[in-house]
Amino acid sequence: MRQEDWSKLARIMSKRSLWMVHFCTGCGAMEMPPVLTSRYDMERFGMISMATPRQADVLLVTGYLAVKTLKRLVQVYEQMRDPKYVVGFGSCTINGGMYWDSYNTIKDLSKYMPVDIYIAGCMPRPEAIIDAFLKLMDMIDKGEATGWKKYHKYYKQYKRNQKMAFSYRLDEVKDIEEGDGK
């Protein structure tokens, strides 16, 4: 078999076996248990939540992100193994949502890490979540979910933005060390 065939097979397999990081970053996590348990049962599609980022493929950002959480989220994201996908969950990850003027929550997740797919709503219904995951599976199948490649490519920019957010001061961030992410 050729290389492409292999990677196609790998994509088909990995889309049916997406393991999530068990990380409730915000209130959106409240709708995750129903999605994972008997009512909506995401395990039908091979999705289960894993304890540690090392084991997982999908990072689900469930809702608003305090800066303190963003630090942990970046750590978790970098500990995951490629290929990895990020799903932004709820309006808060898109533009801050309800907390557009809060001093402690970031407003646009895509500035800090590449997001493959967003789910709108506050909070999104389980059906919406399932739909998003099915779309993500579709994207993986077609090879469109390339957020992790983007993170490697624009690592410096992402790192700079993260540092800006972490330090709460834009003027302090000057130079970013080299690297391409883990």
């Binding site: 039908r44 599609f45 091979g46 883990k182």
Partner: peptide, 29 residues
């Protein structure tokens, strides 16, 4: 276990998919 939990559960061939996926991960730490 899924049936005991009142749910449908994954297909019985899920084990093969999981192992294949794990071995096809791009980076290995």
């Amino acid at each position: 276990v899924a049936r005991i939990h009142n749910r449908v559960g994954p297909p019985v061939y899920q084990g093969y998919i999981d192992v294949f996926k794990l071995f096809s991960k791009k980076t290995n730490i």
